[in-house]
Design a protein around this nucleic acid. Sequence first.
RNA 1: GGCCCGUUCGUCUAGGGGUUAGGACAGCAGAUUUUCAAUCUGCCAGCAGGAGUUCGAUUCUCCUACGGGCUACCA
Length: 502
Amino acid sequence: MEKTEKNTNEIISGPEAIRVRFAPSPTGYLHIGSARTAFFNWLFAKKTKGRFILRIEDTDISRHLEEAIELIMDSLKWLGMSWDEGPDIGGNYGPYRQSQRKEIYLEYAKKLVENGRAYYCFCSQEKLAEKRKAFMGDAKADYYEYDRECYYLGPGKVRENLEGGIPWTIRLLVPDDIEIKFEDLVYGSISVSSNTQEDFIIIRSNGLPTYNFSAAIDDILMEITHVIRGEDHLSNTPKQILVYRALNAGLPVFTHLPMILGADGTKLSKRHGSISIEAYRQDGFLAESIRNYLSLLGWSYDEKTTILSLNDILNKFDLSQINKRPARFDYEKLLWLNGHYLRNMPDKDLEKLILEKIRLDTKTFNANISDIDKKIKKIIPIIKERIKTLNEALDIIYVFFRPVSYQQDFIDYIKTNKDTAINVIDDAILLLSGIRDFSHDNIEAALRNISERKNLNFRKTAEIIRAAVWGSKVSPPMFGTMEIFGKEECALRLKAFKKIIA
RNA sequence: GGCCCGUUCGUCUAGGGGUUAGGACAGCAGAUUUUCAAUCUGCCAGCAGGAGUUCGAUUCUCCUACGGGCUACCA
């Protein structure tokens, strides 16, 4: 207890010794905020040639989903992160699931009891609730702190209760009147009076540890040198430091990352829409753009750089540049970034990703795949700069393989100039049929020819043709689109549309 | 309520005692164009408020307001 926290950061002896961990609680999919935390840990490990450890914090059985562990690992891998130690691959500091470390926590807790740094508590939850209620009823009281009733139980009484099978918990004895100080790499020096911390429970009556205990024990045992986590844990840090002190363990470097909030500035939650990495993956976002976007939340390289490849981030990332301000999640910017990466991706890579997605989407898409393989190479160049997600690409691509569906209001719109429309379509059917090489350039020539002969604005001409061929006011560039459809399909569509408006 | 943390364009941020306070997304306008995009150009827009320190504060200090976190046998 006489130990000061200062300079205990010195436990790092060299870059090889750096060990960081990402410690999710498996309650569902990996969400945006956790992903950023994982990413920053991973980046730091990579940069320092340290080790990145995955630890599963599953000490609250009621909230945990076994499948979530797999889901979280999948998302991490998809984002390009791999770990050096973890529940699936093991390591020298295992096991890496807290539910499998139950005995370890108990052992340490009992050690603390023996040293007089912790004590058994036999107060039931009901009793505690009553105490709290009674205390709060007192007008002057504004916060309740455990009254240490069980701390004053004599050793004989404790043994008697234990042997009598009375349910117990273990509480950490928090020293009075000391300042708990630590240096946070982001938030600077933080100081809290121990008087604001009660003797919190470290082992629950079910024998499992509480978060602040298990996290500290594991970070000590796993020799974690840098604890990088969300700012929501800043207030927990003093409690964990108390555990470090009780065990005479050196402190890691604490680095708290500013929160990622929803667009409205409140804590990111389901009602903000997609918050899991998996959801974004399914919506057709690239790992690359998510990484880039995440890297920009709470960190920035300089005053100008927005686009950062993984390599750039790896080269430039620096924990000391992280800011303290909570950031709001800006979907629009992510979308823009994704579009940027999509546009700048080699066609072949895009093709691979799109084909992958199409194959997964068998329910929606039932045209034959070999046909897609042939056409996709021509489709990609004409759609790639107008998509922001892979899913948007699919939406456009599907139109190439489906019968056109004409919207009534759009039909009505074309019909306002019915005679012209029919005229243009007739001409198109005729001229197009005469083209031997049904190519972009020849199609364009033919259509421009119609426009001139009819003395009709080419915009108007194109609008009519587009309506017939694509079924809407908006389409990918039309000549290329028609080339992909081929002569027969275009003729068919033109004729069909003519009938509809006639 | 208590404790801890934060506050630069709508959003992400750069900067930092003397700057025309910089960039990006979004928005708006224009150019280009067969449509929509993309692209290019331009525009709009910010130091939460009040004291203090100082020759000079957006920058340093304090207060207020607002926001967030923690305050559990959740993590």
